[in-house]
Simulated assay, not measured.
Amino acid sequence: MIEILSSCGGLILCCCHKPWIREYYVCNPNTKQFTIVPSLDKSYMRDLCLAFDPSKSPHYRILKVGLHYNEMYSSETNPWRRLRDPFPMPILSELREITGVFFNGAIFWAFNS
């Protein structure tokens, strides 16, 4: 099963659910090309958000929000790197759903409790 997690600037972030594993891809439907997102720690993961503005850069970023820490992946530099300021854990642990949207150079978060 394939699930669309996020879209931005003509790219789509997808998750392919296979038995015992999940693989993540960034797809460009216009060119029919895709890139496999490098392996990430899915424990305590709450959401992934794709950030891409083709008018500013040919590279995209993916932000992973987790209960204990956040990470960011850049298609330019490749490895996942930990970010310093996570969301406060009491907020994330009580939410049912968190969704990020990249707009005008920033990610905006919608929370449902």
Rank of each mutant, 00 (worst) to 15 (best):
P54K: 12
S55C: 15
K56C: 12
K56H: 13
K56S: 13
K56V: 14
S57N: 14
S57Y: 13
P58K: 15
P58Y: 10
P58G: 11
P58D: 15
P58I: 14
P58V: 15
P58N: 13
P58W: 10
H59N: 14
H59V: 12
Y60W: 13
Y60R: 10
Y60P: 09
R61A: 15
R61V: 07
R61C: 14
I62S: 03
I62F: 10
L63Y: 04
L63K: 08
L63P: 03
L63W: 01
K64L: 08
K64R: 12
V65P: 05
V65M: 01
G66H: 00
L67P: 06
L67G: 05
L67C: 00
H68R: 02
N70F: 00
N70E: 08
N70C: 07
N70Q: 04
E71A: 08
E71Y: 06
M72W: 01
M72P: 00
M72L: 07
M72C: 13
M72R: 08
M72S: 09
M72D: 06
Y73F: 15
Y73D: 00
S74H: 13
S75G: 12
S75A: 11
E76M: 11
E76V: 12
T77A: 15
T77C: 12
T77K: 14
N78E: 13
N78Y: 13
N78W: 12
W80G: 01
W80Y: 05
R81L: 06
R81C: 04
R81D: 03
R81V: 09
R82F: 02
R82D: 04
R82I: 03
R82M: 02
L83M: 06
L83A: 08
L83Y: 03
L83S: 01
L83C: 03
R84Q: 06
R84E: 06
R84W: 03
R84G: 00
D85M: 03
D85H: 04
P86E: 01
P86S: 06
F87H: 00
F87D: 03
F87Y: 04
F87K: 07
P88G: 05
P88F: 02
P88Q: 01
M89N: 12
M89C: 14
M89I: 11
P90D: 02
P90S: 00
P90I: 02
I91F: 02
I91P: 03
L92A: 03
L92R: 00
L92N: 01
S93G: 02
S93N: 07
S93W: 10
E94I: 11
L95P: 03
L95R: 10
L95D: 06
L95Y: 08
R96F: 12
R96L: 14
R96N: 14
R96G: 13
I98D: 02
I98R: 02
T99A: 07
G100V: 08
V101W: 06
V101F: 11
V101G: 08
F102P: 01
F102K: 07
F103P: 02
F103V: 13
F103E: 11
N104Q: 09
G105A: 00
G105F: 06
G105T: 07
A106M: 04
A106H: 11
I107H: 05
I107M: 03
F108W: 09
W109R: 02
W109E: 08
W109F: 09
W109K: 10
A110I: 06
F111H: 01
F111I: 01
N112R: 14
N112T: 05
S113G: 11
S113E: 12
S113N: 14
